[in-house]
Write a protein that binds this DNA or RNA. Structure first.
Length: 597
RNA sequence: GGGCGCGUGGCUUAGCUGGAUAUAGCACCGGGUUCCUAACCCGGCGGUCGGGGGUUCGAAUCCCCCCGCGCCCGCCA
């Protein structure tokens, strides 16, 4: 890999925007308005239509120099020096509209796509390593789809960050301490025939051993155990003792095995969505290696540490802007055991030691936890903080969250099974030529793509409405729409009979409106990836993928490629560039590519 | 009660640090297949951007108040 790559080698716009900014800055100076090119560049906007590729709203500048905005825009437009890559500059109202040299722009874009290939969309490699922690659901049972948004956001962010040039390690923080996992161990350490009747009732008539997925099989009694323990003090006491044992490092040998087995099943579900992890961090390991104890010592010595009457330790956090009702953050219980937040401090210190960027993907119910964690980090003099990507829950049509106990949970596996089944019916209807295994492969990809896209397309801070019909939609703004456009491009390339990366083209062959619009959308991938990787707003990539497919479909209907005579080679090159760019984008959002469907 | 988040056409949704006529999808209505995959395309209908004030040349975007929904306010995780 070339290490001396610059942004100009990666992003088509880099060859134009700095020059446009220079030219406009020079013109502004002649018009009596000083503004450095770099600052002006920050105010440039994408042209909103056919009338401009780049626009500069002159209002702000006009104000600072006390001129009339329309007047200034007009004078800037008139004073722009002839600039390589710029075709013409006009003013409309208070806007300075810049039209780029279309042939140069097309050349630049197609060249970069060809040269970068599978890496198109990314930027130069950057030093440092990022850690993205996501999912981290307790290993107590199967994923319901309320939890999967975290995994999809985190995984997509990891893909975007990786593409944009970061080295990324994804981590799953697995909780093998605490009551939840204790209850799993508590029930499974007894033979089934000695389970309380109320819990045994959860198991389908003696079929407990037949289900193959461990998360489902082992997690099944969990909701009932949780209920049972609430109403049976003697059971609660046993579970309580187990919690103590876990924290004291005296976990029964089956404990970790159970957790790992359930987690294995959960991860198998996520793998169907293309989600995998680089590392798993077990919470108990932070106790075992003494790092939690070290944090406790530092917290006890912190400026606002206080000892409660019963012996517990806390931080007086009234200075940290937390809700006034809970100005104290307990970090050590009266019995000397630690809390989740305390252990999380140890976890984050470890992350800061190893990584240059630390991102946590959290549900909105963890917002306060995040602020608490920040406060504790500040208390022990740690200067760094994690970045939080916080998302709202997935909600059901009637309102409300998905709950395992309330019976409103939809298991991820069931959703995927249903999606794949419907996709299979759909494929079978259209394709009579396919063998069963080819058909299955397409159905898997379509089903998984539909589900992943459905959840990814909404901005993280808005709730996702879950409806079966929409999650399983194969039309319009949906995963299969993208796959279909990609398959179409693939089909044209196959039929052209020429195997290559982006072939030769003549930019002047591609000056039609559809072609120019398509090139323009393709050119935006690098800046979008960079933005998504930085901000975590990965849903924008889902929208962008749709825009490419949409533009390509219009081009497809309006412009013949194969058999189009002397323009065929250029048009093929454009199809190849689309195929490459849309394919890269599908990889980024984790929707499987399909060469045929 | 307090804190945080959200509120855009019938439904779902885009809108980057305020900028030119507010995105798209679903649904609905009307068209398109002798032509590279119709899971597609073209046209139409539909919005006082929750309500009210304010800042500004300009507000869906920023500020304040109110209403609605969600989450949190544990020596749980």
């Amino acid at each position: 890999m070339a290490t001396d790559l610059s942004w100009e080698d990666c992003d088509p716009w880099e060859a134009f925007l700095p020059r446009v900014a220079e030219a406009l800055s020079a013109a502004a100076r002649r018009a009596g308005a000083e503004i450095p090119a770099a600052e002006l560049r920050g105010q440039l906007e994408w042209g909103n239509s056919e009338q401009a590729d780049v626009a500069f709203p002159a209002h702000r500048l006009a104000r600072t120099v006390g001129q009339d905005a329309r007047e200034l825009a007009l004078r800037i437009a008139r004073n722009v020096p002839s600039t390589v890559g710029v075709d013409r500059v006009e003013s409309t109202g208070a806007f300075v509209n810049v039209t780029l040299d279309a042939e140069r722009f097309i050349d630049r874009t197609l060249t970069i796509i060809r040269d970068r290939g599978a890496r198109y969309g990314g930027g130069p490699a950057r030093p440092g390593v990022s850690c993205i922690e996501h999912t981290s659901a307790n290993p107590t049972g199967p994923f319901h789809i309320g939890r999967v948004r975290n995994a999809i956001l985190g995984d997509t962010l990891a893909r975007a960050a990786r593409a944009s040039g970061e080295k990324v390690v994804t981590q799953y923080y697995a909780d093998d301490l605490g009551r939840q996992s204790a209850m799993i161990t508590w029930i499974w350490s007894k033979p089934i025939d000695r389970w309380p009747e109320a819990i045994r009732a959860a198991l389908p008539n003696g079929a407990e051993a037949t289900e193959e997925k461990p998360d489902r099989r082992l997690g099944r009694p969990y909701p009932l155990v949780s209920q049972y323990v609430k109403n049976h003090p003697e059971a609660a006491e046993e579970v309580g003792r187990l919690v103590q044992d876990l924290e004291g490092g005296r976990a029964p040998p089956t404990h970790r095995q159970l957790a790992e087995e359930i987690l294995r099943g959960m991860c198998a579900s996520l793998r169907r969505l293309g989600i995998e992890f680089d590392e798993f961090v077990w919470e108990s390991s932070l106790l075992a290696d003494g790092s939690v104890e070290a944090v406790v010592q530092r917290l006890k010595a912190a400026p606002h540490a206080v000892r409660e009457a019963n012996g517990a330790w806390a931080i007086d956090a009234s200075g940290y802007g937390l809700p006034k009702e809970s100005p104290r953050i307990i970090f050590l219980r009266h019995d000397g055991t630690t809390l989740y937040t305390t252990r999380d401090v140890a976890y984050h210190l470890e992350k800061f030691r190893r990584f240059d960027r630390v991102v946590d993907v959290l549900g909105q119910d963890h917002r306060l936890h995040a602020r608490t964690l920040d406060a504790l980090l500040a208390e022990i003099g740690e200067g760094r903080r994690p970045e939080y990507l916080i998302y709202q829950d997935l909600v059901l049509p009637g309102g409300g969250r998905m709950s395992t106990r309330g019976g409103s949970a939809v298991w991820l596996d069931d959703l995927l099974d249903e999606a794949v089944k419907r996709a299979r019916d759909e494929v079978r209807r259209r394709r009579t030529d396919l063998a069963d295994d080819a058909l299955d492969a397409i159905a898997q990809a379509v089903g998984a793509g539909a589900v992943r896209y459905h959840i990814l397309r909404v901005a993280p801070d808005k709730p996702v409405q879950f409806r079966w019909e929409e999650a399983l939609s194969f039309e319009g703004r949906a995963g299969p729409f993208l796959q279909y456009a990609y398959a179409r491009a693939a089909s044209i390339l196959r039929k052209s009979g020429v195997a290559r990366a982006v072939g030769r083209w003549t930019a002047s062959d591609l000056l039609g409106v559809e072609e120019r619009a398509l090139v323009k959308i393709l050119s935006r991938l690098p800046s979008l990836v960079a933005h998504a990787a930085r901000s975590g707003q990965v849903h924008s990539l889902a929208g962008f993928a749709h825009d490419i497919a949409d533009r390509f479909n219009r081009f497809y209907h309006a412009v013949p490629v194969l058999g189009s005579g002397d323009k065929e080679a250029s048009r093929l090159a454009l199809v190849e560039a689309t195929y490459q760019t849309l394919g890269n984008t599908l990889d980024l959002i984790g929707v499987p590519r399909l060469e045929t469907m």
